[in-house]
C-alpha cells in the first residue's frame, strides 16, 4: 500500500522531482540531437541514466495540466484552461436511496470529523497513460457509514455536478450529463477507496475534481469521478456514463487488467507520464494483494 505521512512525502517529492527531471531530460536530449546534430555529449550521458525502480510522484504541473474532465472540454488541456468557472463553495452533496439518513449535506458537514490523510496512488487511465499522485483525503467507507446504508444497498451511485453554467461543455452533448459512476458496496467500503479533497498538500484544483472526488486506484481513471454532487445507495448495478455509451469498450467494473485489451488498443503497457519507455501494466494497477479477493470466482474477461 502506498500510504505515507505528509512529512515523508515532502522529502520524497523533492528527491523524486530530481529523478523526474532527469527522465524528462532524455526526451529533450533526443530532440536536441535531431535539432542540432549529434554533438551533444552532455545529453548522451543523460540518455543512459537508469530509471528508478519505484514510483516517484508526478509533478504538480503534470497532474494539474493533463486531465480528462469532459465537463470542461475533451482536450487534456481544456480542464486547466476552463475550470475556473466552477464554484466549489458553497457545495452541497445530496445523499439518497437505501439509507436511514438521506439529505442534502453542505460539504463542511461532510468533512467534519474526517481526519485527512495522505495517499500516494498510481492512477491508470483507460487511454494507456498513468501517473503517481499524492492525494489528501479520507476513506469513502468512513463517510458512507455515517448515512447508515440499509441491507438493501448493494451499489453506490455517484453523480458529478450538473450545471451547464459552471461546466460549459455540459451545454453540448459529448456525454449524457450528469456524469454517473458506480461501485459495488464492497468496493465502495474498501479501505483503498478514497474521497480526495487535496493534492500535494494543497486544495484540490478545479480541474482535478474539486471540491470532492472519488479515487479508486485499482480501476481505470474514468471510474474516479470528479466534483461529486450526489451519492445514492441503490439496489441494482447503476447505469454508468461510459458503460452506457459504449458497453463493449467500457465495462462497469473497469478494473485495470493488462490481459483484457480495449477493443481499440492494448492495455498490456502504459506510458507513465514523464517517462520515456512504457511500463508493463500491473493487474489491478498493482493493488492485487489488497483487492483481488473482491473478484474471486468472477471471470474478469466477462466482467471487465
Amino acid at each position: 500500500m502506498f500510504i505515507r505521512k505528509p512529512q515523508q512525502l515532502t522529502e520524497n517529492a523533492v528527491t523524486d522531482w530530481a529523478l523526474y527531471q532527469r527522465r524528462r531530460e532524455f526526451l529533450r536530449g533526443m530532440a536536441g540531437v535531431i535539432l542540432l546534430g549529434a554533438g551533444w555529449p552532455g545529453r548522451a550521458a543523460v540518455a543512459t541514466s537508469p530509471r528508478p525502480a519505484d514510483d516517484p510522484p508526478n509533478s504538480w504541473e503534470d497532474i494539474t495540466s493533463y486531465n480528462n474532465f469532459y465537463e470542461f472540454g475533451t482536450g487534456k488541456g481544456d480542464p486547466a484552461r476552463n475550470a475556473r468557472t466552477l464554484q466549489t463553495s458553497p457545495w452541497d452533496v445530496v445523499v439518497d436511496g437505501e439509507c436511514t439518513r438521506p439529505g442534502k449535506y453542505p460539504l463542511e458537514d461532510l468533512l467534519k470529523g474526517m481526519a485527512i490523510e495522505e495517499r500516494i496512488y498510481r492512477l491508470r487511465c483507460v487511454e494507456g497513460w498513468s501517473m503517481v499522485i499524492p492525494w489528501q483525503g479520507f476513506e469513502l467507507g468512513r463517510l458512507l457509514k455515517r448515512f447508515e446504508p440499509t441491507s438493501r444497498a448493494k451499489y453506490v451511485r455517484f453523480e458529478t455536478l450538473l450545471d451547464p453554467k459552471q461546466m460549459p461543455a455540459q451545454q453540448g452533448d459529448v456525454l449524457d450529463w450528469p456524469y454517473v459512476e458506480g461501485l459495488r458496496m464492497d468496493e465502495a467500503m474498501h479501505p483503498l477507496t478514497l474521497l480526495a479533497t487535496g493534492l500535494y498538500d494543497k486544495t484540490l484544483p478545479n480541474q482535478n475534481g474539486a471540491p470532492l472526488r472519488l479515487v479508486v486506484p485499482w480501476k481505470y481513471g474514468f471510474k474516479s469521478l470528479k466534483s461529486i454532487a450526489r451519492i445514492s445507495f441503490v439496489t441494482e448495478e447503476p447505469e454508468t456514463t461510459w458503460n452506457r455509451l459504449s458497453p463493449e469498450e467500457y465495462g462497469f467494473y473497469s478494473n485495470v487488467n493488462p490481459e483484457v485489451p480495449h477493443p481499440r488498443w492494448s492495455q498490456a503497457r502504459e506510458r507513465r507520464i514523464g517517462e520515456f519507455s512504457k511500463r508493463k501494466t500491473l493487474m489491478f494497477n498493482g493493488y492485487a494483494d489488497q483487492v483481488a479477493s473482491l473478484y474471486a470466482g468472477m471471470d474478469l474477461s466477462l466482467y471487465f
Binding site: L27, R28, A31, G32, I34, S65, Y66, G77, W129, R271
Partner: peptide, 16 residues
C-alpha cells in the same frame, strides 16, 4: 514539434 519537446511546450505527454 522538435522545439516543443526540447523546450517543454507540449505538456505532460509530449509523445502523444
Amino acid at each position: 514539434g522538435l522545439l516543443g519537446v526540447w523546450l517543454h511546450w507540449l505538456g505532460a505527454n509530449p509523445v502523444e
